[in-house]
Each structure stands twice: as C-alpha cells, then as structure tokens.
C-alpha cells in the first residue's frame, strides 16, 4: 500500500516538474503577449466612460473587503492567495496551437467563487494596474475598460453562473467548470463590446461586434475550456483540503 502511495507521489512530483519546465519554456519567446486593450487605443471619451463604470464596482469591493476581514480570520490570506493567482494567471501567455496565437486565462471565475465577485474586481484591478505600469500589458488610459472586461464582467458572470447552476441542481464540479468557462468568454465578449462601442462609427454595431467576437473564437474557445478545467480543479482541491474555506466564501457554503 505504501509502495502505491509512494509511486503516486513520485508520479505527481514528476508531472509537476515537467509542467514547471513546460511553463518556463512556453514563456521564453519574447514578443509582447499582452491581451488587454493596449495603451492609447481607446478615444479619451470612451476611456473616461469605462473608468466611471469601473469605479463603483471597485469601491463596493473595497467596502466588502473591510467588512468581511473582520468576520473571518482566514480571509486575508485567502484574498492574498487569490490575488496572487489572478495576477499570475492573467500574466501567463498560453500558446493555442489551433489558432497560432497566445492568450491568457483570467482566473476570475474561481476567484469569484472563493472570495465573491466584489472582491474579485478589487484583486483584478490591482493585477491590471501592476501589469499596465510595469509589464507593458494593457495601459493606464485603458485601465477602466480592462477592469470592466476582466474584473466586472468576468467575475459577475462567473459567480452568477455558479449560483444559477447550483440552484438548478447541477453537480458542483460541473457548475465550477461552467463558471470558469463563461467567466473567460464573458471577459472577451465585453472587450469586443468595448471595442465595437469605440470604433463602429458609421458601420453597424451588431455586425462589427460579431466580427470582433468571431476573431476571438479560435483562441478563446479552447482557453475558456482550459479555464473551466482549472476552475473545477481548484475548487476540488479546496473542497478536499479545507472545505471550511468555502463556508466563508461568498457562495455561503453552496460548494
């Protein structure tokens, strides 16, 4: 029995080492891997508008952080862990062989299940600000638009999907998969909406929106599935190792 466990442990460790090497190799090629709206792309009026939309969500999240930190002793480390994960995941370019391009998952689906959508907006905002400042990833003028796409749309759609699926009696693992999948797709649907709103000018809004959305499909379709798997896997880990964390999660123990 011990031998089987040892073999399993070695297999897991070997796989983890291979995954780590693969991660490093995959991130070696140097061209810019940004996936957010770059600096200066949006006209000033639209840049300001998306800031105005984003600010109330960030303020709401900050208020929630203060309130829930007093309620739960493990809340700070959980927010720290989720924040670091969202930052790293949204920095990580993943090559999509079917499209020949790179893009990244967002991590907002699992974050919203664990700490709630309000706080996910806060951690996504911090991640996006750091990326815009130091990693040539996104931009300060487009920060509001990127927060609305990745933070607001990603987390609220992910969390909403999770809640609805659970209330419909969908098994938790499938609900988590759907939350991850749809949070990723919602991010890119919102980005498409933002670009269309700024650039459609005289042309048809719906036609341009569809065009941009379709252009994202070859990359984001597989990545969304990957994000769904990551989300379900992460939730499975938390349920197995420390289910009490889910009791203080925004889902109110629905997991």
């Amino acid at each position: 029995m011990d031998g089987i466990w040892t073999k399993k442990r070695y297999a897991s460790r070997f796989a983890a080492v291979v995954a780590a090497i693969a991660g490093v190799l995959a991130s070696l090629p140097a061209p810019a891997f940004a996936m957010h709206i770059s600096e200066g792309l949006l006209p000033a009026s639209w840049a300001v508008l998306w800031y105005v939309v984003a600010i109330p969500f960030v303020a709401l999240g900050l208020r929630e952080l203060q309130r829930r930190n007093e309620e739960f002793p493990y809340f700070k480390p959980l927010v720290g862990l989720v924040g670091a994960a969202v930052f790293l995941i949204s920095c990580m370019p993943i090559p999509v062989p079917t499209a020949g391009t790179c893009s990244h998952p967002c991590g907002t689906g699992i974050a919203a299940i664990l700490i709630g959508p309000g706080l996910t907006v806060v951690v996504a905002s911090i991640a996006l600000t750091l990326q815009a400042l130091f990693l040539a990833h996104g931009g300060l003028t487009t920060l509001g638009a990127n927060i609305v796409a990745m933070g607001v749309a990603g987390s609220y759609v992910g969390f909403g999907t999770w809640l609805i699926a659970r209330r419909l009696g969908v098994p938790w693992i499938a609900a988590a998969f759907l939350a991850g999948l749809l949070s990723d797709w919602a991010t890119y649907a919102m980005t498409s909406f933002e670009l269309t709103a700024a650039f459609h000018a005289g042309s048809s809004f719906s036609a341009m929106f569809s065009l941009i959305l379709i252009a994202f499909v070859p990359t984001q379709l597989p990545l969304g599935i990957l994000e769904g798997i990551l989300c379900a896997g992460a939730l499975r880990f938390v349920r197995n190792r420390k289910p009490e964390l889910l009791r203080m999660a925004a889902a109110g123990g629905a997991a």
């Binding site: 061209p31 810019a32 940004a34 200066g40 090559p95 020949g100 391009t101 931009g139 300060l140 650039f199």
Partner: peptide, 27 residues
C-alpha cells in the same frame, strides 16, 4: 499558423487600426 503573438495584436489592434487608432508606448 502564425507567430504566437497575443490576441491584442491579432484581434484588438487590428480592429483599432482599421478605425484609425494605434497603440501608444506605455508610460
């Protein structure tokens, strides 16, 4: 297939350029 560039180049900047907008250098 392509050069493994990000979707910012292959999608976002492509549509922005069509609308006459180009990305600026980060601050």
């Amino acid at each position: 297939a392509a050069s493994w560039s990000g979707v910012d180049e292959t999608v976002i900047e492509k549509f922005a350029e069509k609308a006459g907008r180009t990305a600026r250098e980060p601050f």
